[in-house]
Design a binder for these strands. Sequence first.
DNA 1: CGACATCATGTAAGCGCTTTCAGGCCACAT
DNA 2: ATGTGGCCTGAAAGCGCTTACATGATGTCG
Lengths: 338, 338
Amino acid sequence: MTATSGPNSRATIEDVALAASVSVATVSRALRGLPNVAESTRVRVEQVASRLNYHAHPNASGLASGRSLNIAIAVPVLNSWYFSEVVAGAEAVLPEAGYSLLVTATSSSAERSEFVRWAAFSGSADGVIMVDLPLDSNDVQLLSRAELAVVTTGFDCPEFPSVVVDNVAVGVLATKHLIDRGHRRIGILTGQSEDPLHFTVPSDRVDGFKRALLESGIDFDPNLECTGNFTTSGGREAMGSLLDLDESPTAVFAMSDEMAFGAIWAAHDRGLTVPGDLAVVGVDDHDMSEMLGLTTVSQQVDQHGVVAARWLTDGLGGATKASESAEMNIELVVRTTT
Amino acid sequence: MTATSGPNSRATIEDVALAASVSVATVSRALRGLPNVAESTRVRVEQVASRLNYHAHPNASGLASGRSLNIAIAVPVLNSWYFSEVVAGAEAVLPEAGYSLLVTATSSSAERSEFVRWAAFSGSADGVIMVDLPLDSNDVQLLSRAELAVVTTGFDCPEFPSVVVDNVAVGVLATKHLIDRGHRRIGILTGQSEDPLHFTVPSDRVDGFKRALLESGIDFDPNLECTGNFTTSGGREAMGSLLDLDESPTAVFAMSDEMAFGAIWAAHDRGLTVPGDLAVVGVDDHDMSEMLGLTTVSQQVDQHGVVAARWLTDGLGGATKASESAEMNIELVVRTTT
DNA sequence: CGACATCATGTAAGCGCTTTCAGGCCACAT
DNA sequence: ATGTGGCCTGAAAGCGCTTACATGATGTCG
């Protein structure tokens, strides 16, 4: 049909220009809504482009303009409820701004650094969202030097805008709730004990836990702290070991709903009732929490992704803001496990 | 440091060439492991490249070579256990082959078509994985014409290699198990009743269900079929309506674990015990299924993503196979809900 | 010892866009 | 008429790579 190509090969801007009897420059301007194009010309070009199924080749336009129209998101793992919510949130808003989402899982510190180098030097993405992957100073340096927009989620990074939650407040809220219910011997299920990534969420929540105890005059008992790795099975094991203690807790603060599920499971394993023998409060408001009646500190996780992505696209659009940080809301949802 | 650029801007192949005292062509060849490069030269180039933090600009190399080194994956939604497993599986193997993953959620038929057009004409990706998104003939045509590798997952597409499960067998397996346990009045929780996408998984599983009943001489009762939309809350509602029937079922086949969770919930709502008053079998082997003791037909979902991705990268690597289809294993995992 | 592969390297022509720069055209004021 | 400015458009120079193709330097063999 067209002068230079059959229907099989992709139409180029030149095909469109030829068919519309204008120059490639005009096609480029018309299709991108740039000013200084006569309305009649624009319409004609758009019609031809659509007829030819023309899509600008991203590599070519990216090379010429220096922009890739990609946003890269890095998460520790993909197949976990929390991270897939964040990714889904980001994915939901990026297309509106014309961006695509490159997804990478970086489970180790080495992989994270490799990702940072790639993001900083390859030009694959115009912006980066780091989810729960604290950056070391080298990472920060590389990312700052690159002409790259960066937003972090789940941890505060002074150098970049961050989407965060007040995790101390999360710990306080959950723990106070248990104390209000009359509990004095309260266990806590944390994330990793030793964290090579220096992820502060667990320690902040522990701090909140301790603060709430302190304010109520309850001594913190280190024996009641146990690591559940943020997983259901980890929570089950951790809770199991707490329940097998001579003086086992009557309530537990699990710092993720998944660990809370494991805690409930461990209680059932031992014939204990929830909340009769063990009260449980989690964090997240996981899809399954309502069904299980789990009391939890809700954070709208997908919104973390949405906010991070918006921040990036807005910044890229021009209004590059200084590094602020957005604090997301939390809310105690009381159900039947407390 | 280098001749043409400070440490802030990305190093180009020319910087490397200059620093290594060779031509850009040699750098290109050396770094990509092409033949006809002296070993000493290759080593030197690699050292310089590494020192300069050089990464080939993907847009530039993509434009020149016609390859993008991206794989695009499209799923109906991202924040669902099933799809995040598939995506995670694909993401896990692509980096090995040098590919990045572009993730898109296309919840409607219009979005799916838009994705197909984009994939076929933009050149953003060298390959595409369509997950549970049946293609219409127009989609197939566009994708075939584009020089694009395509793999489908979750449905059989004669034109492209497909990663599938024998869903009739799934239905038979689950239903027979319930019949073997002595149940005669068995309900079924299906996906959407009307599916604009022509997604055959639900109907195949219903077929298996009916076949198993037939083989045991049990009449199929349409009143016992209800739609749960593959979600926990949908399953709860659907199961609720079945349990409120005059002649309610003593067992139910939920065609996803999430709906099965909802079914268990609905039983608890009414003070019924599982499996005493209601036996439940699901499909998937969701992370949470073990904890809830759910009997289920397991399919290694993440492997679907792995197989699809490998197929793509292998094919792209040269050995482009004809459109075969890989049938993934299923297995009944008996736990305490039956 | 000259002819001819063989290997290592360089030269240069694009890949399909964006963007700067330089007109051409027309309306309007002078 | 002449000048002036505002619009619209086209020509052309890259963006940073890959990849024929050309070239020189070796080595091999009759």
